[in-house]
């Protein structure tokens, strides 16, 4: 199993990867964040939220039937939903992000940095694909050299293509499945590139009210799996936070009691963005020369024998644990 024949490499499902991916595709004014909780106070600090991306995987691969969803399949074209099917491997995260943002309406703003827009590249893609079926849109996305390039740019740090069978932990990461939830024209949809059509859930009010319904929908979906059989993570696509926080802090009408909280949020966003930049720079760089240099230094400085001994002990332990597990 060498290079994936599709030419799409596996990328991490990290919010910072998604944020940078959207930025590189020309999207303005959006960022992606982990959502650790769906309770109203958490959501309040993140608003406005435009879409949720639900990542999940079945712990027991044998039980994967995907029928945990409710709702009605509808034709995307007739309902004004932009929806592309996943037609190739390894693209599910990027596809879910695109299915989400292509349905987010541009939001002009007079404040710098707060305008939400898709940018020329994705606008063109949308115009070009107008009236096309989901399968065709999937093919258009997967054959776009720029999208593929941006997607692949996040997996440069390990130039050897990863063989999932050699990496039990890795394999689990790959088995994640991505589904976007968002409101389009007043209706909450579930966009799952591996299904033929979007799934219509319920009509929702203007504004942030859709999040309540999305939360119920996702929670009831989680509830259809036996406890412990599902691992999941939730991401949100939201308006870029830093420009808004900066503006509010500069605004003399912002009440003093809010300022501490806003400043905290701004500091948090800045730290996060900085860490994201570092991690993305590492993802986009061949790290092997550094790895080799570190290994060589370990060897030259005489630290290798001890480290190898310890690693062997750890490996044996792991093997024994696995053997016990295998006999169960």
């Amino acid at each position: 199993m060498a290079e994936d024949p599709s030419g799409w490499s596996l990328t991490e499902s990290d919010p910072q990867v998604f944020t940078q991916l959207l930025r590189d595709l020309g999207v303005k004014g959006l960022q992606v964040d982990d959502l650790y909780s769906l309770d109203p106070s958490t959501l309040e600090t993140l608003k406005p939220i435009h879409a949720l991306i639900f990542l999940f995987k079945y712990v027991e691969s044998s039980g994967a039937s995907g029928e945990g969803t409710s709702g009605v399949e509808v034709d995307p074209l007739e309902n004004g939903v932009w929806f592309a099917n996943q037609v190739i491997n390894n693209s599910c995260g990027t596809l879910a992000a695109l299915n989400a943002v292509m349905n987010i309406h541009p939001q002009p703003s007079s404040h710098p940095g707060e305008t939400v827009e898709l940018g020329p590249e994705l606008d063109n893609l949308r115009d070009f694909g107008a009236g096309m079926g989901s399968q065709d849109l999937g093919h258009i996305l997967s054959s776009s050299p720029h999208i593929r390039e941006v997607h692949n740019s996040f997996s440069k740090s390990s130039p050897f293509s990863l063989d999932p069978t050699a990496f039990p932990e890795r394999e689990k990461e790959d088995a994640y499945h991505f589904v976007a939830y968002l409101p389009v024209n007043g209706i909450l949809y579930e966009l799952d590139g591996l299904r033929r059509n979007p799934i219509m859930h319920a009509s929702v009010e203007e504004g942030d009210g859709w999040l309540d319904i999305a939360r119920d929908t996702i929670e009831s979906r989680i509830g259809t799996y036996p406890p412990g059989s599902l691992m999941f993570n939730l991401l949100c696509v939201r308006s870029a936070a830093i420009p808004r926080l900066q503006r509010l802090l500069q605004d003399p009408t912002t009440p003093a009691e809010m300022r501490y909280q806003l400043q905290d949020q701004l500091d948090h966003e800045r730290t996060k963005a900085q860490r994201g930049e570092v991690e993305n720079a590492l993802r986009r760089h061949n790290l092997l020369p550094t790895v080799f240099a570190l290994f060589k230094a370990m060897g030259e400085k005489g630290l290798m024998s001890k480290a190898v001994e310890e690693a062997r002990a750890k490996g044996k332990e792991r093997k024994e644990r696995r053997a016990v597990k295998g006999e169960e």
């Binding site: 995987k57 079945y58 691969s61 044998s62 039980g63 994967a64 039937s65 995907g66 029928e67 996943q86 491997n89 390894n90 599910c92 999932p164 394999e171 790959d174 088995a175 994640y176 499945h177 799952d192 591996l194 299904r195």
Partner: peptide
């Protein structure tokens, strides 16, 4: 499970 690649296909029939 009938998977052509590591991402689960939602319609894969339950084994």
């Amino acid at each position: 499970p009938r998977l052509s690649h590591p991402e689960p296909a939602p319609r894969a029939p339950a084994p």
